[in-house]
């Protein structure tokens, strides 16, 4: 009887949490890819766009998203000390996946302010802490505390990765990096997610630089997101 009660209680709680959206902004709408528009993008030609990425070093979905983020952000600025890393093998059924290490990397850009927070290490131990502003964003747009969490220009939010980490299984870092420049399935997936991120950044930074923001694929995705 106790088990039946517990089952009903949990089923109800889960159904409630799945069916009732808890984002503070009423009615977030699907924008493009896995992103939802939670606010109107504040288009400005004077201030840089902002990108916040919350992840954990063990997480395979975060590993997948870092490839696209690294590619997209390289179109707006430059990376230094961006080195290979691995997610933790066995998490969610994935082997250790190749990815980038954002923890020790530096990103500089006049067009984008990028903040990455790795909240846990490869063993799940707490690592970096969130600022009060970042906590507010998580409470508002990530009510179930899931990772990875990406927010572009306080207007577009994605929970989870833009493509399946399964595409990275049994691949080495150099293989994925080479694939990302070719038309392989993993290369296409990374490029598409990078284009999605690029389109959203372009909406926020006033379309700069033009050679990036006016690329046909990016313009088409930007039109979807508006």
């Amino acid at each position: 009887m106790a088990l039946a009660f517990l089952g009903v209680l949990l089923a109800g709680a889960i159904a409630w949490s799945v069916l009732v959206p808890r984002n503070a902004q009423a009615g977030p709408v699907r924008a493009v890819g896995g992103f939802q528009r939670v606010a109107e993008p504040a288009v400005s030609r004077d201030k840089p766009a902002s990108v916040f990425f919350m992840s954990a070093l063990y997480c395979p979905f975060c590993a997948a998203e870092r490839w696209a983020l690294a590619d997209a952000l390289a179109r707006f600025g430059s990376w230094s000390n961006l080195k290979p890393a691995l997610s933790t093998g066995g998490v969610d059924g994935f082997s250790a996946l190749p990815t980038y290490d954002f923890l020790h990397a530096h990103y500089t850009s006049r067009l984008v302010i990028f903040t990455a927070k790795d909240i846990a290490d490869t063993d799940g131990r707490p690592l970096q802490t969130l600022t009060s502003q970042e906590k507010t964003a998580v409470d508002r747009y990530d009510p179930r505390g899931s990772i990875p969490f990406v927010i572009v220009d306080d207007a577009f939010v994605q929970l989870g990765s833009g493509y399946s980490p399964g595409l990275l299984v049994n691949k080495r870092f150099d293989e994925v990096r080479a694939d990302s420049k070719r038309g392989t399935p993993v290369g296409e997936a990374i490029r598409h997610e990078a284009d999605v991120l690029t389109a959203l950044i372009c909406l926020g930074d006033g379309g700069k630089p033009p050679n990036v923001c006016r690329a046909p694929a990016v313009e088409a995705l930007g039109a979807q997101a508006r």
């Binding site: 109800g12 709680a13 889960i14 998580v138 409470d139 508002r140 009510p143 179930r144 505390g145």
Partner: peptide, 17 residues
Amino acid sequence: LWPAALSALGVSGVTLL
């Protein structure tokens, strides 16, 4: 199942993290 259940009870995203 706790995250889903706690989320339904109104626990904040940062706490659930």
